[in-house]
């Protein structure tokens, strides 16, 4: 089991590059506009001119998948970056300061993570209007606790080591110790947690979009494509299979990458 970490890392990285590459390629070339409707081409099965067929409005599923992927990745990367920054800062503080700060932060994180994931995101969307930033904020808050926990336990591991003591004796400020001495040591954990976070963010975004509370039309999103395709599952199953498989592939890619990094470096 431990012998295939390298394979896992490579497979994950390759899949991620593939997904990201295809999504970004959509910026430069798309076979059809993602909202280009053509009533004479409704429900065409996959074929040479429409690789993944067309939907109920005659829109090219392949073009919509690629565009949707770009937005999904954008949302996922933005939220995970945000929660990694906020979570790391809180985790470092909590681990290094200890005492009351630690207690307050960790109890809050416990409370936050005792809400079932999707429920928290749904509440945020209900509270803040269903706008562009709501989804970002909702997912950002959702992933903070996991980063806080990882960074806190990492900080606790290092805080009594000799090199930290040496830095303290040399008069380094807590800020410098945290960011120059402890954080670099935790970089691999942070990287692996971020990759796993990305896979969770993509899954959560797809679920929210499926429920109609995520990325809003006219921008295509995989989750919404899947929920819309349910109305014509009998006529055009490809409309459901394409976005579903893409969600799975993307989640698998980032999950494998995260696991690979964790086994290789942590």
């Amino acid at each position: 089991m431990d012998s295939n970490w390298n394979g896992e890392l490579k497979t994950g990285a390759l899949l991620c590059l593939l997904v990201a590459g295809v999504s970004l390629a959509g910026l430069f070339y798309l076979p059809y506009g993602y909202n280009e409707m053509e009533s004479s081409r409704r429900f065409l099965p996959p074929q040479a001119r429409h690789l993944l067929g067309t939907d109920n409005f005659g829109r090219d599923v392949f073009s919509r998948i690629i565009t949707g992927g770009r937005y999904t990745l954008f949302v996922a990367i933005l939220t995970v970056t945000g929660s990694a920054c906020a979570g790391s800062a809180l985790g470092l503080l909590s681990g290094y300061a200890g005492g009351l700060w630690d207690e307050i932060i960790m109890r809050l994180m416990d409370a936050l993570s005792s809400f079932p994931g999707i429920l928290l995101a749904l509440v945020m969307v209900a509270l803040l209007d269903n706008g562009q930033f709501t989804l970002l904020i909702a997912l950002l808050v959702l992933f903070i606790p996991s980063f806080v926990r990882i960074m806190r336990s990492g900080t606790l591991q290092y805080k009594h080591r000799d090199f930290i003591l040496a830095a303290e004796i040399m008069g380094a400020s807590p800020f410098r110790i945290l960011f120059r001495h402890i954080l670099p040591n935790l970089a691999p954990s942070l990287l692996s947690a971020s990759a796993l976070g990305l896979s969770n963010a993509i899954l959560a975004e797809a679920a929210m979009s499926y429920l109609g509370l995520g990325i809003q039309p006219p921008v295509p999103s995989w989750g919404r494509m899947l929920s819309e395709s349910q109305n014509f599952l009998f006529n055009a199953p490809w409309c459901a299979l394409a976005p579903g498989m893409m969600i799975m592939l993307t989640v698998l890619a980032f999950h494998t990458l995260g696991e690979g990094i964790r086994r290789r470096y942590c």
Partner: peptide
């Protein structure tokens, strides 16, 4: 990595 709701749609299909 299989999203539950995709699995559900597959089951329905």
């Amino acid at each position: 990595s299989f999203p539950g709701f995709f699995l559900a749609v597959l089951f329905i299909w």
